[in-house]
Amino acid sequence: MLRSCLVDGGLDEDRVRQVVRLMLERKPREYIQILYHLHRLVKLELLRRTARVESAVPLDEEQQGRFRDVLGRLYRKELDMSFEENSALIGGVRITVGHDVYDGSVKARLERLKGQFT
């Protein structure tokens, strides 16, 4: 079902809506559970296409553009970017793409250092 919602490897929002609407209209057996499962798959698919960039200080346009370029090249697809400010990181950035995490924050380094001592 999820596969029918994909166009060129990417999720087509209209198709997803269509599928959900059809399911609710026709009400096949156990349709609620099926929809829950679809919801989860869509959530994971969206997660895979989203890059979350957290930084200690806000990033300017140019920096954001560079992140967009580099990540786009790395994953060979266009990612939905979201930029957030997170002062808890102390310094540096933390990028999450799907289930991959690139943690270059000062906080993570301190944690690693702590791990080495204990």
């Binding site: 999450t96 991959d100 995490v101 943690d103 270059g104």
Partner: peptide, 8 residues
């Protein structure tokens, strides 16, 4: 360089 981590 920042190592890539896979997180769940």
């Amino acid at each position: 360089s920042v190592a890539k981590e896979n997180v769940g």
